[in-house]
Amino acid sequence: MSTTTTSIDGSVSLAVRDVHLAFGSHPVLRGADLDVARGSTACVIGPSGSGKSTLLRTINRLIEPDRGDVLLDGRSVLHDDPDALRQRVGMVFQQFNLFPHLSVLRNITLALRKLKKLPEEEAVRLARAQLDLVGLAHKADARPAQLSGGQQQRVAIARALALRPQVMLFDEATSALDPELVKGVLAVMADLSAAGMTMVVVTHEMGFAREVADTVAFMDHGVVLEAGAPAAVFEAPNHPRLRRFLSQVR
């Protein structure tokens, strides 16, 4: 796709500092750190159960960390109103989480009308423009269930982008897709990254991480064990667990 997915208004830098979280007596995050420079893309890789998705959810506080801090442009978000924070931080899920009772267009206009308080026509205009950018303008009146998984995920991305977020979080956005549908979604994400969105991408797509990420972070057992430029992480991994992980996924 050659068009730019969106114009980025005000990307911010993101930092996760020593975040701890336990579900009951089971520690999931054990001092995770992550730095994402303004307008850059960080891919988080690692085995299942390593805490990648949980880390992502502490950034927009869908899950509150027990300890540690999350900073946007150097300012802690943990004392902000979480609902206001989530309007600044877009999120895309593995299962899309589109609202099945609403049309594609309504999925996008809902938050614009109810949260941003935009008038109906303005919301519809923005939503159509956003749909156009992910190549689905002609699906505006369809229900999510009438779309393929790849199309649904592109709608979910458009829905998040319509709120003009400063950071985008992707939680295994292509893991639930049939192989032939993955490419279209990754193309939209690569576009967004190139346009200068600050992004955290939890992914199993090593090719995407290698080509698109500015930083690759390897997580295992609730900590980021190693982070760096893709070339360094993939070609010269230091940590034995990262080497073992890479040998298994290649």
Binding site: N60, D83, Q95, N97, L110, A111, K114, A160
Partner: peptide, 21 residues
């Protein structure tokens, strides 16, 4: 539960998410 999570991630409060989604 994913529907609630999807709505909350957009910035809807619990009450708004319940009412609208």
């Amino acid at each position: 539960a994913a529907q609630l999570e999807g709505a909350r991630a957009l910035g809807f409060s619990w009450g708004e998410a319940m009412r609208l989604v």
